[in-house]
């Protein structure tokens, strides 16, 4: 009997998240002949997304559609997963290492008494075993891990594994009922979407990030304009967050988020070691800083020594020009 792989898909802003396709790709890396794949899609009004997802899954898509499932809730989502487990017993479960997957992964792992390897950035098949690479100290070091047995839960970091391509034939869609077991002990009362329409920081291909040199909350304006032109996201250093220029949810570093975009533009960031841990795996790093001695220049592919308030608007203009063509 082959193994059963299961991907827990994720919906954000009415679309399937890219990391779901990356999780499916992770499964195709690990999978062998005779293994099967299932995907689980949980949300509200997700019928079109189920058909979209089915195009990428060589197996079954379980779709659980209910108004109460619109926003992630660990108890509700676990009860859904239990319903799915009555149909299929997975050997390996893959989720995105996102706000949702980071939470749901360990919920499922504890429920199934399974091991979990979190925040995987690369994987490789080594005869029968799969070796999972993940960062330590936010990327100051990397470890390769493997499972010693039992059911396996894996969360993968967005933007690191290529997305899956379309399956040879679309998956069968199985709709399951949501039947919560009793009343929930935690209930979402309200949600303030500060990020609607914006690119998520950890998934952004381009990140424009500000540090102490940005000087104020208003100082982030030119960075936001540059990010908008590039369809990127805005991040910040710890110094900028501590100074109250921006929200902690924007912090990049060993405390805060780790990002691995194609292009990272550091504006007025000196490059403390704890910040470097959160961004030095970016493909191209650009540093803009007044201080030519700033450590950020030691890791930057391209550096501009100068005042970010003069340089950033010029860059925005320049990108606008070339992207308009």
């Amino acid at each position: 009997m082959g193994k059963t792989y299961m991907v827990v898909a994720e919906v954000r802003g009415g679309s399937l998240r890219q990391v779901t396709l990356e999780a499916l790709q992770a499964v195709s890396i690990a999978k062998e002949d005779g293994d099967s794949t299932a995907a689980v899609l949980i949300g509200s009004q997700i019928t079109p997304l189920a058909s979209e997802l089915a195009n990428y899954v060589d197996g079954q898509v379980f779709s659980i559609d209910h108004p109460e499932l619109e926003i992630y809730n660990p108890e509700a989502y676990l009860s859904v997963m239990k319903t799915v487990f009555e149909r299929v017993s997975p050997d390996v479960i893959v989720l995105g290492h996102t706000a949702q997957g980071r939470d749901l992964g360990p919920v499922i792992a504890a429920h199934l008494a399974a091991g979990q390897i979190s925040d995987v950035t690369a994987m490789e098949k080594n005869s029968d075993d799969v070796l999972y690479t993940r960062p330590l100290y936010a990327g100051k070091a990397f470890e390769q891990k493997q499972f010693t047995g039992g059911i396996q839960v894996v969360t993968i970091r967005p933007n690191n594994i290529d997305p899956a391509s379309a399956a040879t034939s679309p998956a069968e869609i199985v709709e399951l009922e949501y039947a919560p077991a009793g009343s929930l002990r935690s209930i979402v009362k309200d949600i303030v979407r500060k990020t609607s329409g914006k690119v998520d920081l950890t998934e952004a291909k381009i990140v424009v990030s500000g540090g102490r040199g940005v000087k104020s909350a208003e100082g982030f304006k030119p960075l936001e304009e540059l990010a908008d032109v590039l369809h990127g996201a805005v991040g910040a250093s710890r110094a900028a967050c501590d100074a109250g220029y921006c929200d902690y949810s924007m912090q990049i570093g060993q405390t805060g988020k780790v990002v691995t975009p194609e292009i990272y533009i550091a504006c007025g960031i000196s490059g403390a070691i704890q910040h470097l841990a959160g961004m030095s795996q970016s493909r191209i790093i650009i540093a803009i800083n007044k201080d030519p001695e700033a450590p950020i220049f030691k890791v930057a592919d391209y550096g501009i020594v100068g005042d970010l308030f003069e340089v950033v608007p010029l860059l925005t203009q320049e990108f606008r020009k070339v992207l308009a063509v």
């Binding site: 399974a114 091991g115 979990q116 390897i117 070796l131 330590l136 990327g139 100051k140 070091a141 990397f142 470890e143 390769q144 891990k145 493997q146 499972f147 010693t148 047995g149 039992g150 030095s280 795996q281 790093i285 030519p292 220049f297 030691k298 890791v299 930057a300 592919d301 391209y302 550096g303 501009i304 020594v305």
Partner: peptide, 20 residues
């Protein structure tokens, strides 16, 4: 433990690039 470490490594060192 259900998982174990098989190896450790440091990320490739980045080189300072060029100042425009």
């Amino acid at each position: 433990a259900k998982t174990k470490r098989v190896s450790l490594s440091l990320p490739p060192k980045r080189q300072a690039g060029r100042i425009l």
